[in-house]
Amino acid sequence: MTSRAAPKPLISHRRGTGEMLVLKTFLLVPFAALLVAVPLVWGWGMTWIDLALAAAFYVFATLGVTVGYHRYFTHGAFKASRPLRVVLAIAGSMAVQGSVIFWVASHRRHHAFADREGDPHSPWLFGTSPAALLRGFWHAHMGWMFGREVTNADRFAPDLVADGDLRWVNRYFWLWITLSLALPAALGGLLSWSWWGVVTAFFWAGLVRIAFLHHVSWSVNSICHLIGERPFASRDKAANFWPLALLSMGESWHNSHHADPTCARHGVLRGQVDVSARVIRTFEQLGWATDVRWPRAERLAAKRA
């Protein structure tokens, strides 16, 4: 009888000191910019150019994560044409939350062990006391990213590792980060025709926008596993948290998602705004996306808690 091969380990390697320094820089510098944003707005504000650029790059990068990294690459909620596939990977990279292969491997691991030992960012790993949940909130929100362990992509994302286009996008993650900061600055300078426009656009549409997007995304990991409504049965504590629905482009309908992970729409109940699902519908109508896994009434009924 042939023995069954042992599963690949959860962790592929541990980050070195240099990699940790780069990681902390890209996490903490935008966060510092966000902290000083309020007194800066109070003191001299931002221009309409800064605001417009921040909004445009926020939407582009957020949809890169929600439609691309999450619903497409992680869960296969639809099939995409090759150009769309590459654009979604680049757009997600410009959110500066990690390269496409790293992000997908980490998130598939999260679903495999949701709110159990092995989940990289569950807020429930330390217990249920107030102190444990406070520690868990920090860990789920951003603390887990400061760890040295890296999820094994060969185990959790072998399809992406085998894809030449995605290996190329992954390899040049540094370039997409650079563009995420440089493009708003360049456009700010051109539109205002001033060097000061370069500086303010870099700050607001670059650093602050990235930090704000970070915390909206991270809140799905933390808040949406602690509080909210749970209309559907799932194996974990994922919950729907409506205040984040618009900013997260529909990702905060998290209970619905964990109940049916491969569904292209997360906001499946009446009144649940899901911008990402609308974008996927548009891609489908344009012929760029096919085999979209839309919610089915009988499946939803079977999942009701």
Rank of each mutant, 00 (worst) to 15 (best):
M1G: 08
S3W: 07
A6Y: 06
P7V: 12
P9I: 13
L10D: 10
G16V: 06
T17V: 12
G18Q: 13
G18H: 07
G18Y: 10
L27K: 04
L27M: 14
L28E: 07
P30R: 04
F31M: 10
F31T: 15
A32F: 13
L34P: 02
V41P: 07
V41C: 13
V41R: 12
G43Q: 08
G43S: 15
D50G: 10
A54E: 05
F60P: 00
F60Q: 03
G64Q: 00
G68Q: 00
G68M: 06
H70M: 07
R71I: 01
R71K: 11
F73Y: 05
H75V: 08
A77L: 07
K79S: 05
S81F: 04
R85W: 07
R85D: 10
R85S: 09
A89E: 00
S93C: 02
G98A: 12
S99W: 00
F102D: 02
R108S: 05
A112Q: 13
R116I: 10
H121W: 04
S122Q: 07
W124Q: 12
W124N: 09
F126C: 09
G127M: 14
A131C: 04
R135Y: 05
F137Y: 13
H139V: 01
M145E: 04
M145S: 07
G147P: 04
E149F: 06
A153Y: 04
L160K: 02
V161K: 11
A162G: 14
A162T: 11
G164T: 14
F173G: 05
W174S: 11
L181H: 02
L181P: 00
A186H: 07
L187E: 09
G188M: 09
G189K: 06
L191K: 09
S192N: 09
S192C: 12
S194I: 14
S194C: 13
W195T: 09
W195D: 05
V198F: 06
V199R: 10
F202L: 15
V208G: 02
L213C: 04
L213P: 00
H214Q: 03
S217M: 08
W218N: 04
S219W: 06
S219F: 05
N221K: 07
C224I: 12
C224Y: 03
H225S: 10
P231Y: 12
F232K: 02
A233Y: 11
S234R: 06
N240F: 07
A245N: 02
S252I: 02
S256D: 11
H257W: 03
D260R: 07
T262N: 11
T262F: 09
C263I: 10
A264P: 03
G267Q: 01
R270M: 08
R270L: 07
V275L: 06
I280L: 06
R281H: 06
R281S: 01
T282K: 06
F283N: 01
L286W: 11
G287Y: 14
D291V: 10
R293L: 13
R293V: 14
P295T: 03
E298Y: 11
